[in-house]
């Protein structure tokens, strides 16, 4: 079911090590993501999933190991280039707290385009289309505080996808939602990602959410488990 059309991975991490203070979050984790593939990263709390995502998305740099995206070493790029890359090639969705409460939903989704320099009218038009695709068109003038959890997450997804990224990073996107809202969000994510040909790295501890992916990778205590091991 994977749409990967080459065997060279789009995003690869090798032997990542990262410590927060005295706690080691990652110990030699390696993972690969192919173009257009949807990959689920699962594992118990504290296994280092979020840290892995942050390293792969270039948000933090690992203590050791390498992250390669499309042939370039992410951990060797300067912050300016990394920001630019995050703006054009990556989209990020977190569990909560990523929409700006002072802007309307429409402006929130149009934000990345405006930051890239597009005129407000064009940005809002593109944002409106994406909101429609996610089924939140009627709520675009509301502030995030007035949206329900599911609507806010779908708006966050729209914002992640509005720049046409090649990789979407989703960290527990449905963690705070009930099962129907989860289904809506995940269905939207999978369909639009496949349409746009974007790869998705999905972090979750819920097996039903992981079942939306093509492939699963399990983390335990900061390292990736080989296929035949449960714990």
């Amino acid at each position: 079911m994977s749409n990967g059309d080459s065997t060279v991975p789009l995003l690869a991490a090798r032997d990542l090590t990262k410590a927060h203070g005295r706690t080691e979050a990652l110990r030699g984790a390696s993972v690969e993501l192919r173009a257009g593939e949807i990959l689920a990263v699962t594992g118990p709390s504290g296994s280092g999933k979020s840290t892995l995502l942050h390293c792969l998305a270039g948000i933090v740099s690992p203590d050791a190991g390498s992250v390669t995206y499309d042939g370039q070493r992410l951990d060797e790029l300067p912050e300016k280039r990394l920001s630019e890359l995050r703006r054009t090639d990556f989209g990020v969705v977190f569990q909560f707290g990523q929409l700006i409460p002072e802007l309307t939903a429409l402006d929130n989704v149009a934000l990345p385009l405006m930051l890239a320099g597009a005129p407000r009218k064009d940005a809002q038009a593109a944002a409106g289309e994406w909101l429609e695709r996610f089924g939140v068109r009627g709520q675009e003038a509301l502030r995030p505080g007035e949206l329900s959890g599911g609507q806010a997450q779908r708006a966050a997804l729209a914002r992640a996808l509005v720049t046409g990224p090649k990789v979407v990073f989703a960290d527990e996107p449905t963690g705070a939602l009930d099962s129907l809202a989860t289904e809506q969000v995940m269905t939207s994510l999978v369909h639009t990602a496949r349409e746009a040909g974007a790869a998705v790295l999905l972090i979750t501890h819920d097996a039903q959410v992981a079942a939306y992916a093509d492939r699963e990778v399990r983390l335990s205590d900061g390292a990736v488990l080989p296929a035949g091991v449960t714990a």
């Binding site: 079911m1 369909h191 097996a207 992981a210 079942a211 939306y212 449960t230």
Partner: peptide, 16 residues
């Protein structure tokens, strides 16, 4: 577990 996950993936694709 691997077999369960595979079946769950199939069922999810049918559902959506």
């Amino acid at each position: 577990r691997a077999a369960h996950m595979q079946r769950m993936r199939e069922l999810t694709a049918v559902k959506t």
